[in-house]
Each structure stands twice: as structure tokens, then as C-alpha cells.
Amino acid sequence: MVQRVQSGDVAAFDQLILKYRERLYSIIYNLCSNREDAADLTQETFIKAFSSIKRFKGKASFYTWLYRIAVNSTLTYLKRNRMRHFFSFENINEEVSSSEIVEALSVKIKSEKAALMNELQEKLNEALQKLSDKHRTVVVLYEIEGLSHQDISNVMGCSVGTIRSRLHYAKQQLQAYLKDYLD
């Protein structure tokens, strides 16, 4: 598909967008915590990728290359707009949440559960925003997006050891910020 785009097939690029847009958006959204900015940055990432896809030589996997563009664009954006969106978090749709947290919360009455979930979500977002951009990126890519250490090192352009170290430190920080809510 990538080769088709490189040879000028615009329709093939639409398929690439469909394939990667949700994961790309999720990464960017969890880094910047703002839905509109995340949408803009995701679109910008696709346009950048489209403009420079002929330079993609296939040395790394395509999604690594794409994620790298997304992460770099987002980190650059965050540097320029450091304080602007600090408190503009989005509310999740409670109905689609089906993780362990929902089960744990199910012992409570319904209204209390919703309040607790919002509180937890808010605290988690606050804690994530307190991390440095690089530490937050590692947490997002590993814990939320499920990338391997190796893939993250390719995306961020640093060693696997550095990624492990950043992840360890970031989780320590998050544990400290959220100690009242965690095991």
C-alpha cells in the first residue's frame, strides 16, 4: 500500500488513513489532552506523511515512521503551547468503558461510580500532564498504545535502555501522584 502511495496513488493513501487514524489520534490525544488539537495534529501528521512519503525508504516499519512524525509534531506543538491546554481535558464516554476499573467501581452505587470515575480520570490526566513531555510520551506509547520498547525507541530515536529508564521513572512519578487511588 505504501508503495502504491509512493507511485502517486492517492486512493491508497486514503486506505492508510483509515488504517492508522484512530491509533494516531489516540497517541496525540493522550499527549496533548485536547480533542480539537489532537484532530488538527493528526491531520497535520497525515499531510506531512503524504508530502514526504517518497523519502520513506522502508528501513523501519511504516507505522514507526508515521508515529515518529506524529510524536515529533505533537512535542513541538506542546513546547509552543505549554500552558494553553493544561486544563482542557475531555470526558470519556462512560458507557464504552469496560476495563478493570469499571468492575472495581461496580460495587458502588451508580451515581457514586460515575463521580469516582470522573475524579479518577481527572486525577490521571493531571498526573500525566505533570510528567515531562518525553516521560509522558513513553507512558502513552507503552502503557496505553501497547508498543514494544524497541518500537518506542525507534519512534523516539533513543536507546531501549533509555526508554526503560524513562518508563520506570514516569511510573514512579505517577504512583506518587495517584497514591491515594492506587493499590
Binding site: 484512530e22 464516554n93 460495587v107 502503557e143
Partner: peptide
């Protein structure tokens, strides 16, 4: 109730936009 950090982070996966959002997204893109 107390939960693990990993479980709490997995909650972020559930923050998904609606179909309407993706329609607008595709049109803008």
C-alpha cells in the same frame, strides 16, 4: 476502591471519539 496504575492507564484507551467526529475529521483532512 483501589486499582493498579496499569489498569488506570488502560482506561485511557476507552477515550474514543464518536462516528460524527471521524466524519468531520475525514472531510477536513
Amino acid at each position: 476502591p483501589k486499582i493498579s496504575l496499569e489498569s488506570l492507564l488502560l482506561l485511557k484507551r476507552e477515550e474514543k471519539p464518536s462516528k460524527e467526529f471521524w466524519d468531520n475529521f475525514d472531510r477536513d483532512l
